[in-house]
Amino acid sequence: MENQQEDESAAADLLRDRFRLSTISIVQSEAKQNNMEISEPIVACISDLAFKYAAEHVAKDLELFAAHGGRKTVNMKDVILCAHRNEHLADLLRSFGNDLKDKDPQSEKKRKKKSRKDDNAASSVLHIPDDT
């Protein structure tokens, strides 16, 4: 039992390190766009924040949302639900989802009819000006 826990925490540490590498490249390019330098400990801090957000909030929410829908597979709507407290964020994710569908239409063909309604609904709210 203890061994298993050790394995799990080792796996979590490995994932955390891989996650940090991705975060560093995102943060650096974002900082460059803002003409800012960013100190190393802050990058690590943001990375840990994002990792905790992903593991403790997003993963659990997605599991619960899927279970509530009687599914074992998480879909895009579940992810949008994760951001339901922040209208702006939910809209960004919705437009991202529409872009994904546009780029890759053949795999979504079956859902086309159903999603057309969603597309129209989403595009009417996409024009909210960016105030950040």
Binding site: V58, L62, T73, V74, L93, G97, K101
Partner: peptide
């Protein structure tokens, strides 16, 4: 539980937005 590929891509986008 598992996730489909578009849901994973969207989760990536969510985390990128966070960062």
């Amino acid at each position: 539980t598992s996730a489909n590929s578009s849901a994973l891509k969207m989760s990536c986008e969510l985390l990128r937005l966070f960062v």
